[in-house]
Design a binder for these strands. Structure first.
Lengths: 225, 225
DNA sequence: TTTACAGTGTAACAACTGTTACACTTTTAT
DNA sequence: ATAAAAGTGTAACAGTTGTTACACTGTAAA
């Protein structure tokens, strides 16, 4: 493993529990392979078989789902270090449910399923972290479900904005452009732009570049009703 | 455990791997409790803390999510034996994401989290089954996400109907009424009724009581575009 | 059997979103 | 610096869905 010295798993949600010694064993013993991909490349297709754990070691990717009618539904942006779709490794129908596209140059480590099982059996903390991470992913999906079930675009925006701003804050930096946010909401881009400009016109929010500011929390919450 | 003789976990997606001996140990040693609930009772509320595994031993329940705007989103109907929301047991924010309401009289076994961890550490097959079941649940949620992202009601119906009918079949029995199906789709009931009657009028499907028949697969698939 | 009540069919209208098109601005690449 | 591409603002119109209301039917309880 030539790139081993670059690897830092201490921030990884499922590997951080491994002690230094464990990590060395982990990396030395592990029957894994690392592969690099360029920017803006579709590296996993919806439907591909998922028979190993893919760990994003560096860079970032986005995941999106293609609906049967051909339209896109953005799911999330994933930054290293984090496993990709670990929940599907053990499912009876072990196919990726999403497309994965690189946003930067990335390195991805492929760890065979058997190795993951071995790690879990020998390392209780790893097992708990793996379970917790999958649970958190499920919670993320549930939240996504809730967002999609809101019927109006302004309602979705209110849900999204109220979730983004930290407690006692009223400003945050948007890390998506309008097209990506529209995909995330599952709506058309001009429709999102219309709702945004209306909310600005009504004095509920203000936008300058990537900075969003909430001007009127009360009326923003009213959009949810 | 007085109700032990009634218990049959051989069909349970996460317990069926336990051998007879294991099962006896499982049930005898397990620090668990069983509780019965009447029909049509709300037994778990969205937001309740989830610090144990709740196993539905007999009967059936439905799960639904309450959107911030107050509308319902039906999630699924669960029949015994199956665990309820096992994915959330290990999440950092361990709260139930849904309301659970009984559809019949039910019995529910409560197994403390520590017991589940112990079982997984001592029983590899149980661990794999637990992982697989959670993976399958995630896949279910992903499918649900896909359904919700379809924008037209006829498109949702097409997706749903094509998924329900078995291969080489054209008829199936609907186990939801119109109101429940509308909640499942996240749409208004009269809107669903309109779409249904239009598709009947157009000769794509026919409905009599709970029996749905697909008359024209080609045009049904076209609804997805 | 009669009486409720849940479930369904339907209609008119309001509200919202999608589509398409184009001008304009900002960023990126050469 | 300049050209190309990506991102944004906006408008008109069509299409779909939500809302509300009410009649009708089937089903379960008294």
């Amino acid at each position: 493993m030539k790139t081993m010295e670059k690897v830092d798993l201490s921030d990884c949600p499922i590997c951080s529990s491994l002690s230094i010694d464990d990590k060395e064993d982990f990396l030395l013993d592990l029957k894994c392979s690392i592969k690099a991909y360029p920017k803006n490349e579709l590296i996993i297709r919806q439907g591909d078989v998922c028979d190993a754990l893919y760990m994003l070691m560096s860079g970032s990717v986005k995941t999106e789902m293609i609906t049967e009618n051909g339209s896109l539904l953005g799911i999330e942006i994933i930054k290293a270090p984090r496993p990709l779709a670990p929940a599907f490794l053990f499912s009876d129908n072990n196919h990726f449910p999403v497309d994965v596209t690189t946003l930067q140059e990335v390195e991805i480590m492929r760890i065979p399923k058997e190795e993951i099982i071995r790690l879990m059996m020998t390392n209780p903390d790893f097992m708990k972290q793996f379970l917790t991470h999958n649970s958190n992913r499920t919670q993320f999906l549930t939240n996504r479900l809730q967002l999609l079930s809101i019927k109006t675009i302004k309602g979705k925006l209110a849900h999204f904005l109220l979730e983004q701003v930290a407690v006692n804050e009223k400003t945050f930096t948007m890390n998506r452009n309008q097209t990506e946010l529209a995909d995330f909401f599952g709506v058309a881009r001009p429709s999102l732009a219309r709702s945004l400009s209306e909310m600005v016109k009504e004095g509920i929010i203000s936008i300058s570049k990537k900075e969003f500011t909430i001007l009127d929390f009360k009326r923003l919450r009213e959009q949810l009703e």
